[in-house]
Design a protein around this nucleic acid. Structure first.
Lengths: 211, 211
DNA sequence: GCGGCAATACCTGATAAAATGTATTTTTTA
DNA sequence: TAAAAAATACATTTTATCAGGTATTGCCGC
């Protein structure tokens, strides 16, 4: 008798679970042992059951896939975990891999891509579907890379700026001198080479640097 | 012999197509005649083939589901079209229905919900999955409702503002008088009761009103 | 214990934006 | 086709921002 990889699927979309099930049923050495619509149920399950491979959606309710992966890998480093999502960004994929993920597949991948990735992942490789490769390889040299973060105070001030507060109002809110706030504003603008607050706010929001 | 509803699935995610196929194969009077990963291929197909029901993803490459629905309904008003997406907003669903869509299902709906919606839709009802109902019913009285849109010119100017352009630069870019741009700026700020451009840009971006 | 960073604070001149009021033309739509 | 909405333009006053340079204090890591 052949040893089959005990596989769990986690996705909050029933039809996606169904689709992946169908796909995996073609693969001889994969056995789907459970399907979950949330990460919490999965965490319970792996405590009491042997699992070799997990296919998980990244955008899950309650606990997201990136955190879920980290939690699982801390206790069960040998479980192979592949992340999936419909759209994605470089930083998200990188964080997932950094948290121990063994691969990342975009849901628009073909069946063959899915299968190949899964096989390679259980062989120990870190795998990415084609479009993910494009996403993570592209913006290496660009300015998108290595953007310095806001300091605590700068973030506070940027947040209040995005709420339409004036320098004086921010100073009052934070019990600072008008001049201090002015300095922070200038520093932020200079740091990102922005012409004015409007451009700054657009930049910060697009890069999820506020909140 | 029973007449079966000739059904087409459009989704750019192969696994979703597979999932829906599996689901629909349970239904006696539904026959899946084709599957597409883009709207263009679908438009070609329906010119030469009889189709009764279309299940389509809203977020498709090249042409989105909302526009696709409109195009199809203009030529083939009798085809029943059900929209699907992972996440959604009120305005998107409403626009889809206004364009002739016969229903809208969130992809996190259960199999039973899917089946029920499909049956009701081919019976002539306008159907929504549970979560969609919640989305479209909730924010009726709230301020979230009835936010007036930007006019074309206003959108142009707001976009340039988000790029850090000054009034004079915008005037030069759009071949307008400095004073005209000033008036537009004022009108936009007044329309949304924003204190300054920073707050405005934050507001517009959070509500996906730029681009 | 020193260098660097973050946070605080100050001064000033030039420039830009915000608030107010008005008015004409064009385009859209009911 | 008449009414409404959008786009255009002008003038003025007040207020805020931007950009330049400077400086002190506290904290963290090497």
């Amino acid at each position: 008798m052949i040893m089959k990889y005990k596989t769990v699927i986690v996705d909050d979309h029933p039809i996606v679970i169904s689709g992946i099930s169908g796909l995996l049923s073609d693969l001889d050495n994969i056995e789907i042992v459970e399907k979950f619509e949330s990460g919490i149920a999965l965490l319970d399950y792996i405590e009491d059951n042997k699992v070799d491979l997990i296919l998980m959606d990244i955008f899950l309710p309650v606990i997201n896939g990136v955190d879920l992966c980290k939690t699982i890998k801390q206790k069960h480093p040998r479980i192979v975990i592949i992340g999936m999502s419909s759209q994605s960004e470089r930083s998200l994929v990188m964080q997932f891999i950094q948290n121990g993920g063994n691969g990342y597949i975009l849901k628009n991948a073909s069946f063959d891509e899915f299968k190949e990735c899964i096989y390679k992942a259980i062989d120990g490789e870190i795998v990415f579907s084609e479009e993910v490769k494009t996403i993570i390889s592209q913006p290496l040299s660009e300015d998108l890379e290595r953007i310095p973060g806001l300091s605590r105070r700068e973030r506070d001030i940027a947040l209040l700026l995005s709420q339409g507060k004036s320098t004086q109002e921010i100073a009052d809110d934070l019990f600072l001198s008008f001049l201090t706030v002015q300095t922070h504003r200038r520093n932020i603008l200079q740091k990102y080479k922005m012409k004015n607050v409007a451009e700054l706010i657009a930049f910060l929001l697009k890069n999820n640097m506020l909140n």
